[in-house]
Amino acid sequence: MYSNSPLLVFSGQSNTRLASAICANLGIPLGRSETLKFSNDNLMVRYKESLREGDVFIVQSLSAPVSDSIMELLLMIDAAKSASAGRVTAVIPYYSYARSDKKDEARISIGGRLVADLIEAAGADRVLTMTLHSPQVHGFFKIPVDHLSAEVVIANHLITHVDGVEEGVVLAPDAGDIKRASALARRLNCNLAFIDKRRVSDTRVEARSLIGDVAGRKVFIVDDEISTAGSLVQAVNIAKESGAGEVYVATTHGVYVGPALERINSLDVVEVASCNTVDVSDEKRQECPKLSVLDVAPLFAETIHRIHTGESVSVLFD
């Protein structure tokens, strides 16, 4: 039980806006720390306040530059343990290496497991994350993991911003997303459809057909992550070819790299909403007006409070 220990939240450099918003919801100041980068590309982390016996939460999304983000997180965990923190929780809103969850080619590393091992070796006592691309990555950790879902945040956004959601259809971009899409469809009280895909090469997957009825209906495409938006283009196009009306897109992690913004600008969609698990810069939002950002800071703040006080986290999924 750590409720009698001071609650301390610190942030790496990858997502300071989310960390500040979490602290605002908790009613505490963001902890003071600094990260220096030397001319030889080495990083050094320094805490600027006492951590002794504190219940420390370190917020760091594994977003670009990913290797720097991982190394900074490891250094922050190690420095906190060296500073006699009572417990250290790595708050990783976006765990990018969750895509590397299996050995599906010869002579490759399972990166998701390796990063989990590094976080444990650095001294983390538990992990708090959101919407892992592959849920089995949860099992790569030998320490407690609280795995949050953005489902309720996305559902509330659609319910409050779109008229007649119950007459729409939630569309899963592929069969692997059906479970996530089905959970959202239940919250919206609407129908479900999915896109059947086939792999045509080692690097390319092609949409074959849409299973379900979207003709004349509002369609809500839901995914865990948008990176280059290649899969999104296929999903929107096949939905439109099947007679869909307005199309809305919602994802947990808006990574938006490479040609993503250009592709989204050219799509016939009302909006592409992502959570602030990855920091979407003001420049990106100006370049692509269809982007909107959903705030998951209250959910992370409530979870951190419950972990700190020893209360149940599972009730947040009800």
Rank of each mutant, 00 (worst) to 15 (best):
N15K: 02
L30M: 02
P65T: 11
F38T: 06
T303I: 01
H305F: 07
S231M: 05
V152L: 10
P65C: 08
L261W: 13
N189L: 14
D196C: 13
V91R: 03
A185W: 04
A244K: 12
L18D: 07
D146T: 11
R107T: 02
I70D: 01
P135L: 09
L192V: 08
R204Y: 13
E49G: 08
L188D: 08
V278C: 10
A207Y: 03
P93C: 00
T131P: 12
R52N: 12
P289H: 05
R204Q: 15
E72M: 10
F220C: 10
S84Y: 02
R32W: 08
D282Q: 07
R285I: 12
S281Y: 04
A98G: 09
I22Y: 00
I154M: 09
T252W: 09
I77P: 00
I110N: 10
A155H: 07
V145M: 01
L128H: 00
A121G: 06
F38Y: 10
I143N: 05
A235D: 09
R285G: 03
R113Y: 05
A239S: 08
V296L: 01
K37A: 11
A90E: 04
M44N: 11
V205L: 08
G258L: 12
G216T: 01
A250C: 15
T252K: 08
I159C: 09
R306I: 00
V145I: 05
A80P: 06
R87A: 12
E283N: 04
L26D: 02
S274T: 11
N237I: 08
D41W: 12
L62N: 05
K48A: 09
I108W: 12
R180Y: 03
H147T: 01
V205C: 11
L316C: 08
I92V: 03
V233R: 03
L132T: 03
S109E: 08
V205T: 10
I178G: 04
V153S: 06
S67T: 13
M71Q: 04
E225S: 12
V272C: 04
S209G: 14
E283M: 08
E262I: 10
I58D: 06
L158E: 00
V137G: 10
A207K: 07
D202P: 05
L51F: 04
A79E: 04
G139E: 07
L261D: 08
A244T: 04
D279F: 15
L74S: 04
D104E: 09
F300E: 01
A193H: 03
S274D: 03
A183V: 12
D55G: 09
V88P: 04
L118Q: 07
G12C: 01
V59M: 01
I304W: 00
V219P: 06
H161W: 13
N189D: 14
L74F: 04
V9I: 15
D104Y: 11
G139A: 11
S63F: 01
A122S: 10
R198C: 09
D318T: 09
F140W: 06
I108K: 03
E271S: 15
T277D: 03
R199Q: 05
E34C: 13
S266D: 15
